[in-house]
Nucleic acid binder design. Structure first.
Lengths: 230, 230
DNA sequence: AAAAAATTTAAGGTTAAATTAAGGATCTTT
DNA sequence: AAAGATCCTTAATTTAACCTTAAATTTTTT
């Protein structure tokens, strides 16, 4: 799972309920907001994968909020609405929203719709192919790092290594394990090669490649990818 | 447009109505079937981009049909249902269906839902059969590039390849994926052929074909279409 | 302070991709 | 059915990106 979901609704009980439902389904990163203002703050600072927006909000409406969000995010949006009239539905969908759910709804319906949308949008509900490392964003699917707004391509070996590190983030990965991932089980070349590749990765990802904050060395043990977030 | 849609419903008037709605929206390839048997025949012989399935059919039900379809197609499915009970909706969505529409529905709602799903699934709907790449404009529908006011025709293979790249713009497309798109799953010709075709495309699209700004190479990974806009 | 481990840089080798041109297909026209 | 044009594929060569190696340097550990 591991996809951040932002829920905006002014009913605290409903908010809590949705949070519980999603948590029990493995969506551990659920953010909630009671109004547009709070929602925008969160949306701008967090990489949200999906939005659940109530249409009636104390300081505006979901449609307005939707248009604000679209200015910086392409993530799918589901509207929550107490009204069930076709006109409303279309108004939401016409804007480009991806779905809507009429209150009251069944827990299962909510979960299934969210999963369906995440699957459609990101190809999968689980495996995360993007992460941020401080200022940089790493896109494993597209073999690219975005740093200072610039897109720097990753090369084949670099991609294999950073993938391995990401899969084992916050854990030590031995030099052997990294070499095996990149060069196969029967690699006995100079281990120094690995260090050169690590250097290249650091140059692309780290602020200061010589003082790495993400790909850290554990002398005699291996490397570890830290301070990274989905 | 150019996306084939298969509609399965046993009410001939509804079938006709949907066909008309979609045709007027530019979906020129709409197939209709009154029952499961006919639907399967069509589904197996035609490359369908989206399915609209009624739940009640004379020789079975939409859910059954859905499971049959899923055996060979990943295209999105929208259920049409006269019943509005949550259980039914979930049953449909639980299977993996992407949406459902409760009859009676508004023409506009149908169209918007179809477009939303096509956009999600294929990254693009109809209108995006044209795009610009710097100075050049590529018209996929008419298989032509407009460069310096001149219209340069695209050839068959070139068209397939640029389409594939456009559908996956800003993403890596492996050489394998490109070869498969152009020459089928069982192509064992010289892979160099692909590069020749890429060269031709670059000559037609790029300012300086030897320093491509749009069709870029990711050595060992594939090609990527970048800096393009609808 | 010496030894060990990791870093760093740049040059050389390797391999994937680019390039060019010619020979086959295929489609059109007569 | 033959000629001509267009398009596609193959092949041989060149280019350039990438990977590896090595040697000098720095950092960490003993």
């Amino acid at each position: 799972m591991n996809k951040k979901i932002l829920v905006v609704d002014d009913e605290p009980e409903l908010l809590k309920m949705i949070e519980d439902i999603l948590f029990s389904e493995g969506f551990f990163q659920v953010y909630t907001a009671p109004d547009c203002k709070k929602a925008m703050e969160l949306a701008k600072t967090q990489p949200v994968a999906l939005f659940l927006l109530d249409i009636n909000l104390p300081d505006g409406n979901g449609f307005m909020l939707y248009q604000e969000i679209r200015k910086f995010s392409q993530a799918p949006v589901i509207f929550l609405t107490a009204r069930g009239e076709p006109e409303d539905k279309i108004r939401g969908l016409g804007l480009g929203a991806d779905d809507y759910i009429v209150k009251p709804f069944l827990a299962k319906e909510l979960v299934l719709r969210i999963k369906a949308l995440l699957r459609r949008t990101y190809g999968t509900v689980s495996a995360e192919m993007c992460f941020s490392a401080g200022e940089s964003k790493v896109d494993l699917e597209n073999a690219a790092v975005i740093k200072d707004g610039r897109e720097i391509p990753l090369r084949a070996k670099e991609l294999i290594l950073i993938k391995k590190l990401w899969e084992n983030r916050n854990k030590i990965v031995t030099n052997d394990a990294l070499c095996m991932a990149a060069w196969g089980d029967d690699y006995y070349g100079h281990e120094n090669n690995l260090m050169v590749q690590i250097r290249h990765l650091r140059e692309k990802i780290e602020e200061d490649p010589s003082r790495p904050a993400h790909i850290i060395t554990l002398k005699g043990l291996g490397y570890k990818l830290v301070n990274v977030n989905e």
